[in-house]
Structure formats: C-alpha cells, structure tokens
Write a protein that binds this DNA or RNA. Structure first.
Lengths: 345, 345
DNA sequence: CTGAAAGCGCTTACAG
DNA sequence: CTGAAAGCGCTTACAG
C-alpha cells in the first residue's frame, strides 16, 4: 500500500516548529505553551495527521492492544467459547483497547508457540489473555517470567504470585458443594462423576471438590463411577457410551464436570434408552447458553462468565497501565440453577 | 517492558556476516548460498532470534493481520454475532493470520472512526472486515478509495467494482421467494412483514424481495402491515407490540426480516395472548442458532454464515497477498427450513 | 520552553 | 554473492 500521507517532519515544517515539539504536543507533554500547542494542533487537524504506529512502538510506547489466545484442538463451534471471545472484545473495546486474537490448535506445535511468543517479544501486544490452557503451560510461564502481563482463565499454581500474573478462577468448591448437597437432598446416594481434563486446573479441582462434598455427607465415590473427559461434548458422549456398556448397575445420578460434557452424556444416555431424569438424574456445571434450552432443561451450577471475563480483561489492562500493581486473582461466583434434569429418588 | 533480547546486528556479528545477509536469510531470498544460509540459521535458532515486527512494518512489509470491525450500537450479546466473530478468527487463524477486533458503537463518533481509519493508515493491519455497516458507510468508502482492502458483509453499491472491495451477500431474493411460496402454499394471503434497518443493504432488499414474491402470486402488500425494525430483537418486540395495539384485524402470518426480530415479535405476540402458529404463523430469516430451540421452533430461511464468513475472510486474505485480484463478490445460499411456527390456513 | 541528534531494528536498492 | 548505507517515522534524553 502507499505510505502515510504526511509525517511529523512535514507537520513540524508547516507549523514552524521542530519534530520534538510536534511530538510533545501529541503526547500531551506539560511543557508546551498553550499558543504553541494550538498552532500545532491546528496543522495536525487540517492534514488529518496521526503518528505512525510502528514508529511509536519502536520507541517503547504502548500498543493499546491485548492478545487473546484460545487453546483448542478443535474448531471453535461452541457458543460458550464464542461468548467468551465476545466478552473479551467487548470489555477491551470499552477501554479503548484492541484485541488481537489467535487460535492455538496445539501447544505442542513449536512453530505456533513461537509465533505466539513473538507476539509478546515483538511488542505487538501489551499483554495477553489465555483461555483453555493447561494449568501449567511452559510457554505461558516463560512469558510471565520475562515480565509480560498474562491473564489466565482457570489456573492455580501454588505460590506463584507475580504481579504480572492475573488469574480468574471458578469457585469449584462452592459449586460442587451446592450441586452435591442438592442431589443428596433429593435422596441420591449413588452418584457418578464425569471428570474433566486432568491437565487443566478445573479438571482435578472439580473432581476433588466433588469427592469432598460427597465425603461431607458420609458418601464415598465408587471409582468405577468416575469417568474421564476433556471437557468437550464429544468426550462426554464417548466416555458415557463406553461406560454404559461396561457397568453392572447404574447410579441414580451423574454429575458432569461441565455442561458440554453433560450434553454429550445426555445423548449417550438417550441412545442407550435411558431417560433423564426418569431413569437417571443429570447435573452439569457452568450454565451453558444452551442448558436452559435442551430437553430436559439442565440443572446446573451457574458461573457468571461475562463478569469473570470482564474482570480479567479489566485487570490485565490495569496491570499493563500501572506496573506497580500486585498479583491479582478473581474468583467467580457459583450458584445452583434448578431445572428439569434431576428428580427425587 | 524490556527490549528484544537480541537484534539482527548481533546475529550478523556472531554469524560473521552482514545484517543484509541475515535479512536475506530471514526473508528467504534466493541469492544466498546454502552454506551461508545454514550458518546464519543456526545462530538464529540458537539465540531464538526473531526480527522485530514494528521495524519490519516500517520498511513496508505485511502485518499478517486483518482487522475485524463490528458496527453495533449495543453490547454484543447475540450468539449469532459471536459465532461470526469466531468464524472470522477461525478462518484467519487457519491461514496464519491474526485478527485485530474492535467494536464500533457508533459510526457517528469521529474519534472512534478516526482510530479505525488509523488502524489502516498506520498499517497495523493489511485489510479489514466490516460487519453491520450501513450499505453506504463513508469512512469505509474512503478506505477503499485509498486502496485498502475491505471485506464487507451485506453490501450492494451499483457499479463499485474496485479490486480491493470484497463483498459477501445473502441471497435475499431466493430466500424471500422460498418463504413466501411456502406461506402461500399453506394458504396464507394476508402476510405482514417486519422490515429491517433501511440503511443496511438487506433491509430494503429483503422488503423488496418480499413484495416481489408476493406480487408473483398476485398478492399485494398492505402498507399497514409493513412494520419497521433495525434487525434487533428489541426492535422486533417493540414494533410488533405497538402495531398489535393499532390494527383492526390481523394477518394470518408474519414474515420477519430476520430471526432475531422474529424472536422479539414472538414475545410481543405471546404477551398479547396470541399463540404461534395457532393464532398466527411466524416466519424468520437467517436460521439463528436458537431458532430450532425456541418454542415453537421457528420456520425460517437458512443462511450458511460460517461458509460465507470463511469465504469472505479467505478472499480478503487472497486479495491482500495478490494485488492483481479482481473485484470479488460471494453470494450465500438460502434454504427453507420448515419447523413448527407456520401452519395451514 | 525548544531544537539537533541519537536511537529504535529492520529491509532494500546500490555498488562491487 | 555480499556489505555499507540510506531510509522508514517516531520519541526522548541532552543541551541550551
């Protein structure tokens, strides 16, 4: 394309000052007399001049851009993920920031990881937000160690309290407790659990919280009733289908680590001729956008994603703009939402 | 933050060549002997060097980034819009491109428009995609006139066939015809229409297509039965509610310009004690993600948004990479999807 | 208060 | 095949 119409040298010449002064005006330096400022501003306005972005970055200025990196092996067709992206953009835009988004198919692909790291090293962004990463993801830790600000959804690393690490977590403990209390209150004693990705923070955390909540009622968890998944609908379906073929007797309820997995489990149950909640109760976690719309409407634990993402984005930006900030962690709320997928036994 | 660890001068020194040669290696120039290339590459690998992004841009290189600009007065909480954003990111990521997203609340805000234009002028992006713009949006036309490549969803401007203009449209004519044919086939003669935003391309286009399709059956459109909207659910609700209070008698069916508007109309109808489809039939356009899930499931015209967006993104990137490309326009498909919201009369 | 100059890190004709 | 040098457009100590 063509180069910028006009540069600061031209503006300086026309306004009858030096480039230094033009720069001072643009950057609102205090030591410029009002008269000079106005004179320069007029020329700037007249010619529609705006300083070259790359040139400014090379001198060390901020980019007013944050990166958004989605780690997802599959194409992103999940409405919840879409909403998260939208929330980050919404939140950043409202603060005058751009969002540079990229999907990371696999963190094992060195080429991709290199490109993402370069985004930071080359200062295309002032900071980044990571969604879907493993609890311990080496390249993210490397970036944090180098001092870049990183916002991470769903992470818990003991003792890592760097000021440039911004965390936002789910209240898995509270959520699981509410869910289990509710199921037990309905008379359930035999409850299966579909666990999430063991590498992600909420995978083991939700499982542990489930076990603890069960134990609080003096109930123990049958190891054969803990199924694996990776938080995806597909894995929920496959895992449940396989499990149904292998077990001698059924629990009265299934608690899924999230709603997507519950959707998959529901499908597998239906295909096996089991009806929810008549034959078996099903409980989710997250309150996915579709949870109120499926048949039967899913009883679940509501997480306020919009609020969490907005908070995370806001704090990432604050940390970028003020490097005296401390380590920050936000924990979202968890609230039982009773619908139609669980019944009395 | 801190500056890049190492620069091309260092690499050159260590490899025992000049910066020119390092640059030639990085950019895969042919005139570098294999031995030299390997020697330099080794040093680059060893030090994890990658050339500074801003510096490269200043010399006129591509940014491998496209802008995505969403024009929307309201906060974006619509799942369809979220999906569109996801599709652009998905499509661009798969081609190695980053997406810089920004929401434009109002094209009347000169400050915002200025910032968006600067994104192009300052070469932060190689091209942009616009969603939700008016059919004729001055600042977009200005960018196209300056030679920037712009991908636009839903635009038709007679005779504007610049090679850097990439268009993707809906087949409004075919869609409306299918919808009207279906309704007429069910016995409907009196059909109301909720029109879309008159400034957007598909607003007047769908209305015209509706009128033409009706005329083809010898039916004329009652002017009192053409309601306004701006394509939003809210406007569909408000417009329908107001209209219901003012009209002496009801049509047997309502054709909404899109599904969001249909959702709003449905709510207004329900609140007025009218049931769909028993008391009145309702038809949408787009096949929104929720259309199959609402009560009653909405009969509508399916548009393959994912495919449209993927095509648009792809062609924008192709146009960026090869400036000998011609003007391109893609028209999506339109297909009747029969569900439960229309009945025989 | 203000200008001349250095510096940011590349790429690309140009000359050899 | 390769290097020295110009150029991209800013900002920011520095000196006055």
């Amino acid at each position: 394309m063509r180069k910028n119409d006009i540069n600061s040298i031209e503006i300086a010449r026309i306004a009858g000052v030096s480039r230094s002064t033009v720069s001072r005006v643009i950057n609102n330096y205090p030591n410029v007399p009002q008269a000079t400022r106005e004179k320069v501003m007029q020329v700037i306005e007249r010619y529609g001049y705006s300083p070259n972005f790359s040139a400014r970055i090379m001198t060390g200025m901020k980019t007013l851009t944050i990166g958004l990196f989605l780690i997802s092996p599959e194409a992103i067709h999940d409405t919840l993920t879409h909403a998260l992206i939208g929330d980050v953009i919404e939140s950043a835009s409202s603060r005058g920031y751009y969002v540079l988004t990229h999907i990371i198919r696999s963190t094992g692909d060195t080429e991709t990881v290199r490109k993402v790291k370069d985004t930071f090293y080359q200062r295309r962004i002032d900071g980044g937000i990571f969604i879907g990463a493993a609890n311990h993801e080496p390249f993210i830790e490397e970036l944090i160690a180098k001092g870049f600000v990183a916002g991470i959804v769903d992470q818990h690393l003991e003792g890592r309290l760097e000021p440039n690490r911004v965390i936002c977590n789910f209240d898995n403990k509270l959520g699981m407790k509410q869910g289990v209390d509710y199921l037990v209150g309905l008379g359930h004693r035999n409850i299966a659990f579909i666990a999430g990705d063991p590498l992600r923070c909420s995978g083991p955390e939700r499982l542990k919280a489930f076990q603890d909540a069960m134990a609080a009622h003096g109930l123990k968890v049958n190891p054969d009733w803990v199924l694996p998944s990776d938080f995806s609908e597909r894995s929920g379906y496959e895992s449940t289908a396989r499990w149904l073929q292998s077990i001698p007797d059924l629990p009265t309820a299934i608690f899924a680590c999230n709603d997507s997995v519950a959707f998959g489990a529901l499908r597998a149950l239906n295909e096996a001729g089991l009806r929810v909640p008549d034959d078996i109760s099903l409980m989710g976690f997250d309150d996915h956008l579709l949870s109120s719309r499926i048949q039967p409407a899913l009883t679940t634990i509501r997480v306020n994603f919009s609020e969490m993402i907005d908070m995370l984005t806001r704090q990432v930006i604050e940390t970028i703009e003020d490097d005296t900030q401390m380590f920050k962690k936000y924990v979202g709320t968890a609230e039982l939402v009773i619908r139609d997928s669980c019944r009395n036994v």
